[in-house]
Amino acid sequence: MHGKRKLGGWLFLALVLAAYGATVLVDPGRARATFADFLAMFGKVVPVLALVFVLMFLVELFLSPERVEGWLGRGSGLRGWLLALAAGVLSTGPVYTWYALLAELREKGMRTALVAVVLYARAIKLPLAPLLAHYFGLRYMLVLSLFIAVFSIANGLAMERLAREPESKP
Protein backbone atom coordinates (compact mmCIF):
# COMPACT_ATOMS: atom_id res chain seq x y z
CA MET A 1 0.00 0.00 0.00
CA HIS A 2 2.75 2.44 0.99
CA GLY A 3 4.89 1.52 -2.07
CA LYS A 4 1.91 1.99 -4.36
CA ARG A 5 1.11 5.34 -2.72
CA LYS A 6 4.74 6.49 -3.08
CA LEU A 7 4.85 5.55 -6.77
CA GLY A 8 1.45 7.17 -7.36
CA GLY A 9 2.68 10.43 -5.82
CA TRP A 10 5.67 10.66 -8.15
CA LEU A 11 3.53 9.72 -11.14
CA PHE A 12 1.07 12.47 -10.20
CA LEU A 13 3.92 15.02 -9.96
CA ALA A 14 5.31 13.85 -13.33
CA LEU A 15 1.90 14.33 -14.99
CA VAL A 16 1.52 17.83 -13.55
CA LEU A 17 5.06 18.73 -14.66
CA ALA A 18 4.20 17.46 -18.16
CA ALA A 19 1.15 19.78 -18.17
CA TYR A 20 3.45 22.61 -17.08
CA GLY A 21 5.89 21.75 -19.88
CA ALA A 22 3.03 21.87 -22.39
CA THR A 23 1.99 25.31 -21.06
CA VAL A 24 5.58 26.59 -21.44
CA LEU A 25 5.59 25.45 -25.09
CA VAL A 26 2.14 26.83 -25.93
CA ASP A 27 2.12 30.07 -23.91
CA PRO A 28 5.44 30.98 -22.19
CA GLY A 29 3.98 34.21 -20.72
CA ARG A 30 1.15 32.35 -19.02
CA ALA A 31 3.60 29.72 -17.79
CA ARG A 32 5.69 32.46 -16.16
CA ALA A 33 2.58 33.88 -14.44
CA THR A 34 1.66 30.37 -13.30
CA PHE A 35 5.12 29.83 -11.82
CA ALA A 36 4.92 33.17 -9.98
CA ASP A 37 1.54 32.02 -8.55
CA PHE A 38 3.15 28.73 -7.54
CA LEU A 39 5.96 30.51 -5.66
CA ALA A 40 3.50 32.82 -3.86
CA MET A 41 1.30 29.88 -2.92
CA PHE A 42 4.30 27.85 -1.77
CA GLY A 43 5.31 30.70 0.57
CA LYS A 44 1.81 30.75 2.08
CA VAL A 45 1.59 26.97 2.49
CA VAL A 46 4.98 26.51 4.19
CA PRO A 47 3.79 27.54 7.71
CA VAL A 48 0.79 25.17 7.47
CA LEU A 49 3.05 22.39 6.22
CA ALA A 50 5.41 22.98 9.13
CA LEU A 51 2.45 22.67 11.52
CA VAL A 52 1.27 19.47 9.82
CA PHE A 53 4.77 17.94 9.95
CA VAL A 54 5.09 18.79 13.66
CA LEU A 55 1.65 17.25 14.34
CA MET A 56 2.58 14.12 12.36
CA PHE A 57 5.81 13.84 14.33
CA LEU A 58 3.91 14.20 17.62
CA VAL A 59 1.29 11.67 16.53
CA GLU A 60 4.03 9.20 15.66
CA LEU A 61 5.82 9.85 18.95
CA PHE A 62 3.00 10.02 21.48
CA LEU A 63 -0.19 8.58 20.03
CA SER A 64 -0.37 4.84 20.25
CA PRO A 65 -3.05 3.06 18.21
CA GLU A 66 -4.82 2.34 21.51
CA ARG A 67 -4.97 6.03 22.40
CA VAL A 68 -6.18 7.06 18.92
CA GLU A 69 -8.75 4.28 19.09
CA GLY A 70 -9.92 5.65 22.46
CA TRP A 71 -10.18 9.29 21.31
CA LEU A 72 -11.24 8.91 17.71
CA GLY A 73 -12.05 5.24 17.26
CA ARG A 74 -15.36 3.38 17.28
CA GLY A 75 -15.73 3.65 21.05
CA SER A 76 -14.97 7.37 21.26
CA GLY A 77 -18.67 8.30 21.29
CA LEU A 78 -19.85 11.92 21.41
CA ARG A 79 -16.37 13.13 22.42
CA GLY A 80 -14.93 11.75 19.17
CA TRP A 81 -17.58 13.48 17.03
CA LEU A 82 -17.10 16.80 18.81
CA LEU A 83 -13.31 16.50 18.62
CA ALA A 84 -13.47 15.83 14.86
CA LEU A 85 -15.90 18.71 14.32
CA ALA A 86 -13.70 21.12 16.26
CA ALA A 87 -10.55 19.92 14.48
CA GLY A 88 -12.19 20.52 11.10
CA VAL A 89 -13.41 23.99 11.99
CA LEU A 90 -10.08 25.04 13.49
CA SER A 91 -7.73 23.54 10.87
CA THR A 92 -6.27 26.08 8.47
CA GLY A 93 -4.53 26.08 5.10
CA PRO A 94 -5.23 24.00 1.99
CA VAL A 95 -7.10 20.76 2.64
CA TYR A 96 -4.47 18.60 0.89
CA THR A 97 -1.90 19.48 3.54
CA TRP A 98 -4.06 17.56 6.07
CA TYR A 99 -4.62 14.34 4.09
CA ALA A 100 -1.37 12.70 5.23
CA LEU A 101 -2.03 13.40 8.93
CA LEU A 102 -5.58 12.05 8.65
CA ALA A 103 -4.32 8.98 6.77
CA GLU A 104 -1.82 8.33 9.57
CA LEU A 105 -4.48 8.75 12.28
CA ARG A 106 -6.84 6.49 10.33
CA GLU A 107 -4.19 3.79 10.13
CA LYS A 108 -3.80 4.10 13.91
CA GLY A 109 -7.51 3.54 14.50
CA MET A 110 -9.40 6.77 13.73
CA ARG A 111 -12.92 6.08 12.47
CA THR A 112 -13.54 6.69 8.77
CA ALA A 113 -16.64 8.64 9.80
CA LEU A 114 -14.54 11.06 11.86
CA VAL A 115 -12.01 11.57 9.03
CA ALA A 116 -14.96 12.59 6.83
CA VAL A 117 -16.28 14.88 9.59
CA VAL A 118 -12.93 16.70 9.88
CA LEU A 119 -12.79 17.22 6.10
CA TYR A 120 -16.40 18.42 5.86
CA ALA A 121 -16.30 20.66 8.92
CA ARG A 122 -13.44 22.55 7.25
CA ALA A 123 -16.19 24.19 5.17
CA ILE A 124 -16.95 26.30 8.27
CA LYS A 125 -14.33 29.01 8.01
CA LEU A 126 -14.28 30.91 11.30
CA PRO A 127 -11.76 33.59 10.21
CA LEU A 128 -13.89 34.27 7.11
CA ALA A 129 -17.24 34.30 8.95
CA PRO A 130 -17.35 38.13 9.17
CA LEU A 131 -16.81 38.37 5.41
CA LEU A 132 -19.58 35.83 4.74
CA ALA A 133 -21.89 37.82 7.04
CA HIS A 134 -20.88 41.05 5.27
CA TYR A 135 -21.77 39.69 1.81
CA PHE A 136 -24.87 37.63 2.68
CA GLY A 137 -26.01 38.73 6.14
CA LEU A 138 -25.45 37.47 9.67
CA ARG A 139 -28.55 35.25 9.63
CA TYR A 140 -27.40 33.58 6.41
CA MET A 141 -23.93 32.94 7.86
CA LEU A 142 -25.37 31.36 11.04
CA VAL A 143 -27.95 29.18 9.26
CA LEU A 144 -25.40 28.02 6.65
CA SER A 145 -22.78 27.19 9.30
CA LEU A 146 -25.35 25.22 11.31
CA PHE A 147 -26.37 23.16 8.28
CA ILE A 148 -22.72 22.49 7.36
CA ALA A 149 -22.08 21.23 10.93
CA VAL A 150 -25.17 18.97 10.81
CA PHE A 151 -24.28 17.64 7.35
CA SER A 152 -20.68 16.97 8.39
CA ILE A 153 -22.01 14.48 10.97
CA ALA A 154 -24.52 13.00 8.49
CA ASN A 155 -21.80 12.64 5.86
CA GLY A 156 -19.49 11.00 8.39
CA LEU A 157 -22.12 8.37 9.17
CA ALA A 158 -22.81 7.81 5.46
CA MET A 159 -19.09 7.53 4.67
CA GLU A 160 -18.65 4.82 7.27
CA ARG A 161 -21.29 2.74 5.52
CA LEU A 162 -20.04 3.44 2.01
CA ALA A 163 -16.24 3.46 2.36
CA ARG A 164 -14.35 0.60 3.97
CA GLU A 165 -11.97 1.26 6.87
CA PRO A 166 -8.33 0.15 6.56
CA GLU A 167 -7.01 -2.45 8.98
CA SER A 168 -5.38 -0.89 12.04
CA LYS A 169 -1.65 -1.25 12.57
CA PRO A 170 -0.84 -3.97 15.08
Binding site: F12, L13, V16, T34, F35, M41, Y96, Y99
Partner: peptide, 17 residues
Amino acid sequence: HMLPILLGMLLLTSLLL
Protein backbone atom coordinates in the same frame (compact mmCIF):
# COMPACT_ATOMS: atom_id res chain seq x y z
CA HIS B 1 5.79 10.16 0.48
CA MET B 2 3.55 13.23 0.66
CA LEU B 3 6.23 15.55 -0.82
CA PRO B 4 5.58 14.82 -4.53
CA ILE B 5 1.81 14.95 -3.88
CA LEU B 6 2.05 18.35 -2.17
CA LEU B 7 4.35 19.78 -4.83
CA GLY B 8 2.07 18.40 -7.54
CA MET B 9 -1.00 19.92 -5.84
CA LEU B 10 0.62 23.36 -5.57
CA LEU B 11 1.72 23.27 -9.22
CA LEU B 12 -1.66 22.01 -10.42
CA THR B 13 -3.58 24.62 -8.39
CA SER B 14 -1.47 27.50 -9.70
CA LEU B 15 -1.80 26.14 -13.26
CA LEU B 16 -5.59 25.96 -13.03
CA LEU B 17 -5.88 29.36 -11.37
